[in-house]
Design a protein around this nucleic acid. Sequence first.
DNA 1: GCAATTGATGTAATAACATTACATTAAGGA
DNA 2: TCCTTAATGTAATGTTATTACATCAATTGC
Lengths: 132, 132
Amino acid sequence: MEPRKLTRNQALVLETLTHAEAPLSAYTILDKLRDHGFRAPLQVYRALEKLTEFGIVHRLESLNAFVACTHPHDHGPEKAVIAFAICEDCGQVSEISDPEIEDRLSLLATKQQFRTEKTTIEMRGHCGNCTA
Amino acid sequence: MEPRKLTRNQALVLETLTHAEAPLSAYTILDKLRDHGFRAPLQVYRALEKLTEFGIVHRLESLNAFVACTHPHDHGPEKAVIAFAICEDCGQVSEISDPEIEDRLSLLATKQQFRTEKTTIEMRGHCGNCTA
DNA sequence: GCAATTGATGTAATAACATTACATTAAGGA
DNA sequence: TCCTTAATGTAATGTTATTACATCAATTGC
């Protein structure tokens, strides 16, 4: 998947997320980008929408926040199922892609004739560093 | 698990959710309960918090909405992992409890020394009825 | 070049979801 | 009864997300 050409706003939002150590809310991103000319939530939300479509940013539903993708492969809209492990203490998020989970959920869905469009898996808890 | 004694507000909120055909937002519940004396969001949120604790109501993170539990067993705070299949068309939500998924996620978490407190699994898509 | 379309942007306003703060009341145990 | 704890009522505010509308930029077909 080619490194897609991003617009200025998209690039700024992505960069902000990439440098962050924890998920950021849209409004936090907005604040961080005021110096770069951002003035309204929509500028952020529109960029996030595209970046999410491209698969290089993920939305964490249980947090109403966003992270840059750290997953080695699978950019682009091929949309493998990704499970997120979110540390409540340090905010660190790790992405887990596991075919077994995916297959199992797929089977369970099929069994009841459910056609899945999008799957969210989020584990909230404490990472190794913060438990130690 | 004993049928727990609910307060008036909790009972009203639960009843509202039980009779609903799709997940309801807190504010929708509020509107439906105005005739019963509800006047502020907090009345709803407080009831929802307790009902969720009790395990008889679930919050759907990807929807910012709530459903009454339809799952046969597992009331009470024993907190089995539940996956939700949410139909985008009719709003129907089905609960799936699957030990394999649970075990697999547990294994993946352990592998990276992540201690899970709460797991969210939500599939968005189209149910059998709406696909047919 | 220059319409015409399409996609991105800017801005303001508002909608939707959730919490904080504080005062009051109800329920249960010593 | 007194004390403690849990639940409630109310107002205000905070946070997250969208709608509406005007403008601008890039691309395509002619």
